[in-house]
Amino acid sequence: MSAIQNATANEGTEKPMSTTAMVSIREVDKFFGDTQVLFDINLEVQAGETVCLIGPSGSGKSTLLRCVNHLEKITRGSIRVDGDLLGYRAHRGKLYELREREAAQQRLVTGMVFQQFNLFQHMTALENVTFAAVKVKGVAKADAIARGKSLLTRVGLEGKFNSYPAQLSGGQQQRVAIARAMAMDPKVMLFDEPTSALDPELVGEVLAVMKDVAETAGMTLLVVTHEMGFAREVADRVVFMDSGRIVEVGTASQVLDTPTNDRTKAFLSAVLR
């Protein structure tokens, strides 16, 4: 599962060659206006794998994550999730850009957890978790509620079904957000600095839930994080990014303990002290 692949090993192929690659990022460049923020990103994530993206702020790791569920459009290259080319539909040798409605459908493969939780403020915890299942997937309301309750219980919030986000702590809100993403049965879970906005004493409870998610059979995780302890314990691979480039990829112990790149070394010595 934790096959270490050189980041550029699969360069230049048209079709996704490995059938198990859940996320396949190829030669991706991304510009904001005239500023290039991602440079020739190549990364394959296998089904069931947990990959942590680390690096200094502004290194492009959040942007890359947001590209994987098409919240941001890439400028060049391609991203395939579960075999589907993000944002396009191939038809008779042409790529047709997807309509919003189709893109929305495509996003169901990925679930996303945000740094600022982004819970729907006017809905209870349970409504947050059931909303998209009912409205987007068309799950029967009773089924969605049963599933939502079991998910909230799983993240340790059995007493908080009817609480509004404003009544919950940051850690509790983030756990609702994880349950909300899980409720759509995604194949890939994307975590964008999920603990960065939390008070230090609340980080642990969220990381514990994330670890539980990572242990879900077949679930693929892509986690942008500054929690080196979490990366070491849970990640199959760690990707170090700097200035919009992937600098180093390897197992957690390879990247965190015996980094080969000078920038990785400098970053790690600064965060780990």
């Binding site: 409605r101 990925t110 729907f120 998209a132 409205k135």
Partner: peptide
């Protein structure tokens, strides 16, 4: 963004 990420149109 949260709504979008959940597949809402």
């Amino acid at each position: 963004e949260a709504a979008k990420a959940l597949g809402a149109t």
